[in-house]
Design a protein around this nucleic acid. Sequence first.
DNA 1: GATGAATGAGTATTCATTCAT
DNA 2: TATGAATGAATACTCATTCAT
Lengths: 197, 197, 197, 197
Amino acid sequence: MKKDRPKYKQIIDAAVVVIAENGYHQAQVSKIAKQAGVADGTIYLYFKNKEDILISMFQEKLGVFISNIDEEMARVTSAKEKMLVLIRKHFEILFEDKHLAIVTQLELRQSNKEIRYKINDVLKGYLKLVDSILIAGVEQGEFHEDLDVRLARHMVFGTLDEIVTTWVMNEQKYNLVEQAGPVHELIIKGLGAKIVK
Amino acid sequence: MKKDRPKYKQIIDAAVVVIAENGYHQAQVSKIAKQAGVADGTIYLYFKNKEDILISMFQEKLGVFISNIDEEMARVTSAKEKMLVLIRKHFEILFEDKHLAIVTQLELRQSNKEIRYKINDVLKGYLKLVDSILIAGVEQGEFHEDLDVRLARHMVFGTLDEIVTTWVMNEQKYNLVEQAGPVHELIIKGLGAKIVK
Amino acid sequence: MKKDRPKYKQIIDAAVVVIAENGYHQAQVSKIAKQAGVADGTIYLYFKNKEDILISMFQEKLGVFISNIDEEMARVTSAKEKMLVLIRKHFEILFEDKHLAIVTQLELRQSNKEIRYKINDVLKGYLKLVDSILIAGVEQGEFHEDLDVRLARHMVFGTLDEIVTTWVMNEQKYNLVEQAGPVHELIIKGLGAKIVK
Amino acid sequence: MKKDRPKYKQIIDAAVVVIAENGYHQAQVSKIAKQAGVADGTIYLYFKNKEDILISMFQEKLGVFISNIDEEMARVTSAKEKMLVLIRKHFEILFEDKHLAIVTQLELRQSNKEIRYKINDVLKGYLKLVDSILIAGVEQGEFHEDLDVRLARHMVFGTLDEIVTTWVMNEQKYNLVEQAGPVHELIIKGLGAKIVK
DNA sequence: GATGAATGAGTATTCATTCAT
DNA sequence: TATGAATGAATACTCATTCAT
């Protein structure tokens, strides 16, 4: 299996660095090859084409992302707590790998429609994770019983994504992780419902 | 003033159609000129360069967008109602101009970073509108008194944007406008606060 | 006759200024029109096309050049003195109109082959002047009796032209007119003939 | 070293042919590539850009030119003889490579000012050769002891250049090499010095 | 005569991918 | 496996000239 070879990961990591530092449109295959320490042609022994590098990169990174969050979430039981873990880990992982943050929030979105559809497919794994929290929350009576899970999933993901993107666009100047608590509260309570304490 | 000339709008509308139908990277200037019914060179009497067409297009369309929402919002008084108007109009406008929806949600995001930063600048006009509702809501006691307006703005915009994008990616199959009510409720009430009726 | 109209000269003078200040390839018709204070289209009431402006400009300027030299040359009788007058006036005129010097020595030579052939035609008027001096000099016994007039004409023109071009390329830093005497001596005596005094 | 590769010379020779046959402004990179028998992109493995092809071409050709003359000049001792060799070789080389003659005398001069300044830099190698003859001639008492070397250099180069250009413009109809003797005599003796026999 | 908005032909350069070694 | 030289398709923008007013 090619994915087990060291050069496979080497090339993916090189791609993240090159894209983060040069931008999507300046991330030529030859630059990635140089950064990975291999010849241009070698890239094509491990990936079908440039698009395949990007999709694979996203898959690899999202896989780690999800298992990372999964693991941490297992430690808490309530849906609200799980949601807090999800938000905090989401922010933490991107806060700690700024190259990855730039790539996912800004650069990868410049790819063409086909790639974006494929990336969206990969992203479904993450959205399922969100769904599982929402469904559990409804079942456990923590969230509204008539919650539209599909819409709620968009709210959660859309909110987190927007906040991370803004942070990246502001040159990652502030501490993203500190926002986890307030964001969690906002998502749970919404803008204006009066709360029964 | 060049912006008053009919060809200015003609070219912008042509750009929307061409980008929506061919995709961002296949939207050559010559195609836009042909669609607008002018010569290639004429484009450059009204726009500095291709980038300028895109930015101007976004400005024009967002301007209409905002005044459209503004006007409708003036008819209601409570912040919650204003928020509903905002959401409904946001969905309505993009639901009714599917070319525009494709361009704003998918195609324009493939532009390079400089263009995206400029588009973000233009977008601030819309975000100010959101802010004005949020601030009024807090002042009128409709929203939480300790609401973090910046985060809330991200939640509102991120949620709407994500929902519209998903609708576009699903080939605009369902009626986006019907989601306005449920989305409004979700944003106001959040996922799970118990409501005082 | 169009050439008598004030705008004719106005446009030619504008062309000299625009070409000198912007360079041949940056001297667009619209720039010349602006400098001349007329509309783009007006240019074409006085000149067939852009090429015609350049040829006419060269013709006008060379005409003045020649009659200027002619007049001064009439005051002396010997061929050697006439040659000195020619050289001095050649240098003087270009030294005093630096725009013209830049245009004739550097910019106009970037024009395409057709224009250069036509300019060469115009230049024949000047070469005839040189010839007339050479022939008189041979007849009067001042120059070698077996002088090859055609070759000598090339030597005279080639030498003067090369010296002026070098002066222009050196940013016209030194006083070109002061070279007239030494250059005259060099042309008359050559590199190494022993002179009978 | 890229300059050692056969394709480097191949492309330069193709450029000479294409420019001579099509003219400077009709010498597209794709035409040069086709003539050289390589792909358009291959050009850019050997040259930075189109300008670089032209400068390199001039450098290569002038290098051969100079060493060619140098070699032949070593066989004679007197400055006058050296000057004759220079003139004869100058004429011979361009007479025998008519493409090169067209390119250097007519086409290359249409290039923009930046290129022409760079070409002038390269040309200094040739002018140094001329200077060395002049200085030796003065030291050996063959040329006037108070000869202004800078002016004399301009006379020599200006004369030769003008004669070759005229020959090219006259469609290379006559035998340029036959002019070497008379031109040499003209340069040495000037227009009119009486000679001590 | 004078205007100036409109026209549309033409080209250097990049970079993902291949394939002989 | 690994290499890297070679390939060739694809596109924004300028500016001389025209012509309806």
